[in-house]
Design a protein around this nucleic acid. Structure first.
Lengths: 331, 331
DNA sequence: TTGTAGGCGTTATCAT
DNA sequence: ATGATAACGCCTACAA
C-alpha cells in the first residue's frame, strides 16, 4: 500500500505537506503543491480513510437499518438516504432487521456504535424507548413513527392525516362500505394503528359507522392483501372501497379482486400508501399517499450530521409533508 | 470514548491482556479474565473496529455498487448480498452508480479500496477492462455480465439462454410476431445485446425471420416499456408477443397495451426477466425468467472472501441457473 | 501468564 | 511555507 510517507519521499517533502496538499489545505506554495500532486499520480497513492477516521474518532459511515431492501418502499428510502449521505460525505451501510424485534435490537445495540457514526433506523416492531439505555449519546434517528416522547431524534410522516385523506377521497367518490386492510394489530403506536386511526376519523367525520367486519388485520405483504380480500368475500362482507396500509398490500388487494371477478375501480375502489414507482404502471394505476421519501431521507441525514457536531442538541421531531396522488384505481 | 487503556487501568492489567481477553485469545488466567470482563462491563468499553482494522488492513465491509436500490431488481439482489455477507461476518455498504459510467468508475476507483475489503459491482455501462489499472489486486466481483475475458472474478446469469427460453415459450404458445423491447443498444456486451441474441436465436431456430421493426431500443425503465408499445402501435407494426428486457420494462409494456385497449395475453403475450416479487400479483401475473438472485449473491460474497484469503487465486467465472416462471401473461 | 515496545497511516500542534 | 513530533486505539513480536 502506498502511504503518505512514500509520496513524501518521492516528492522530497514531509508527510505533513503531502497531507496538506491532499486535503486541499492552504499554506502550500504552488511549486511544492505541483510536485506533490505529481508524486501522488506516479505512485497511485490513495488516502487511507480508515487511518484518517481513526484519528478523527469517526468512521464516516452511517448505518441504515430497515426491515429489508427488497421491499420497494425501503428500496426507495434507501436510495434517498444514500444520496443524501453522499452529499455530506458519508457512506451508508445497510442493515436488515427482517422486521423482527431481535433484528432491530441487534441493529441498535450490538456493534454499531463501534463502526458507524450514526444510525438511521426504521423500526417496525421495537419501541425504541425500551432500548434507550443501549445507545446513550450515540446519534440515532428514528424513521417512520412518532410518539417517542421527544426523547430521540425522529423523522416521521403524517400517518393519520395521510390515511384520513385517502379515506376521505374514497368517501368523496361515493364509497360507503370502505374496508381497511392494515398491519398486524390496532394496539400500540405503529404504522398500522396510526393509519387505522386516520381511517376511522374520516369515517366518523362523514357520519359513517366503523364496521369491525371491514377491518382486516392482515400483515404487510402483497400476499396478505390478496388473502384479506378473499377472506372478506368468503365471509360475505360487502365493500366498495379499500384503504390499504401500503402499496404492496394494495397490489395484493387488487389482485384478490381480480381473482374474484370484481372490477377496480367500478366495483371496488382501492387506495394505497407509499407511492412506490410501480403504482403508476399498474392497470388500473394505483391511487396512493406519497410520503415524501426524499424529504425524510435528507432530514434524517441532516439530524445525524448536526448531532455529531453538537451531541447535546435537544432531540427534534420532524414530519414530512404528504400528498395524495389520485390515479385510476379510484376514478 | 473508553479505550483498552482505560479498561486495563481499571482492571489493573496491561492493555495487551485486555486485548487478549476481548478477542478470546488463550493464555489468560481465569481470575484475570474475570477481572477484565468486569472492568469491560463497568466501563462500557467497546472495541474500536476502526483501530483494529487500521492495523489489520481490513475493514470488514464489502461494497456493493448498483445502479440504484430503488429498482426492484437491485433491491432484491441487495437483500441477498447483505444476508450472504452477514453470514460471513461482513457488513455491506451500498453505493449507487445511477447507471452512469462516471458513477461506476467512481465506485471502482475512487475511495473504495480505502474503506472496503472488496467490491461487488453490477456494472451496466462500464466495460471494467478499461478500468483494470485502477484496482490492481483489490478484490472485485463483477455481477450480471460475462465476457470479461477471465481477467476478473465474475458471477453472471445466462442471459442468452434465459432470453431464448422466454422467446421459445412465446413461440410454443403460438406467437409469430414477437417484439423485443430491450435496452439502449445492440452493440457491445451488455444485458441488452445478450438478451437480444437469445431472442434472435430462438426465432431463427423456429424459422421465424428477425424483423427489425419489432426490435425496440427503449431503455430500462417502466416508462420506456410503455412508450415502446405506443411507438410500435403508431408505426402500425403488428405484434402478438413481447420479450421485455426486464420485468420493469414488461410492466410498462403491459401498461402500454392497456392504454391502447390491447388485451394481455389474448392479443399480446408478454414475458419479462428478473422475477421481481410484484410479478405474481399483477393482473395478469407476469411470466418471467428468474435469474437466481440468491445463488449469485452467495457466490459473489464467497469470491470476495476467498480472494481475501488468497489474492493470487486465478479469476473464476460462474453462471447462475435460471428458471422460466410461466404465469398468466402468456397463458 | 503477563507486560513492554513499536508501528499501522493520518493529522494537530508547535517549531523552524 | 514547511517540518518534526506526538498522538488516535489496537495488535504483533518479543521480553520478562
Amino acid at each position: 500500500m502506498v502511504t503518505m510517507s512514500d509520496v513524501a519521499r518521492l516528492a522530497g517533502v514531509s508527510k505533513m505537506t503531502v497531507s496538506n496538499v491532499v486535503n486541499n489545505r492552504p499554506g502550500v506554495s504552488d511549486p511544492v503543491r505541483r510536485r506533490v500532486l505529481e508524486a501522488v499520480q506516479q505512485s497511485g497513492y490513495r488516502l487511507n480513510v480508515n487511518a484518517r477516521t481513526l484519528k478523527a474518532g469517526r468512521t464516516g459511515v452511517i448505518g441504515l437499518a430497515v426491515p429489508g431492501v427488497d421491499q420497494p418502499y425501503f428500496g426507495v428510502l434507501g436510495e434517498h438516504v444514500i444520496a443524501a449521505a453522499a452529499a455530506k460525505g458519508f457512506h451508508v451501510a445497510i442493515e436488515q432487521t427482517g422486521a423482527a424485534a431481535e433484528g432491530e435490537a441487534e441493529a441498535i445495540s450490538q456493534s454499531h456504535r463501534l463502526q458507524f457514526d450514526g444510525l438511521i433506523i426504521s423500526a417496525v416492531i421495537l419501541d425504541p424507548r425500551e432500548q434507550a439505555h443501549a445507545w446513550a449519546d450515540f446519534p440515532i434517528v428514528m424513521l417512520g413513527e412518532r410518539d417517542y416522547g421527544q426523547a430521540i431524534d425522529h423523522v416521521g410522516m403524517n400517518n393519520e392525516a395521510g390515511s384520513r385523506a385517502a379515506t376521505e377521497h374514497l368517501i368523496e367518490r361515493g364509497c360507503t362500505r370502505i374496508a381497511n386492510v392494515t398491519g398486524w394489530s390496532l394496539e400500540g403506536v405503529h404504522v398500522g394503528s396510526r393509519r387505522y386511526r386516520g381511517y376511522t376519523e374520516a369515517l366518523k367525520a362523514a357520519g359513517i359507522p366503523v364496521d369491525p367486519a371491514l377491518v382486516c388485520l392482515s400483515g404487510m405483504g402483497q400476499e396478505t392483501g390478496r388473502r384479506a380480500v378473499h377472506d372478506l368475500h368468503e365471509a360475505g362482507v360487502e365493500f366498495d372501497g379499500v384503504v390499504a396500509i401500503t402499496d404492496s398490500v394494495a397490489i395484493g388487494v387488487m389482485r384478490g379482486l381480480a381473482d374474484l371477478g370484481m372490477r377496480c375501480p367500478e366495483d371496488v375502489r382501492v387506495v394505497g400508501f407509499d407511492d412506490i414507482s410501480v403504482c403508476e404502471f399498474l392497470t388500473p394505476s394505483l391511487t396512493t399517499v406519497a410520503p415524501g421519501h426524499r424529504w425524510m431521507a435528507e432530514k434524517a441525514v441532516e439530524l445525524i450530521a448536526s448531532r455529531l457536531e453538537d451531541p447535546s442538541r435537544p432531540p427534534e421531531d420532524h414530519t414530512a409533508p404528504y400528498e395524495l396522488k389520485v390515479r385510476e384505481s379510484t376514478r
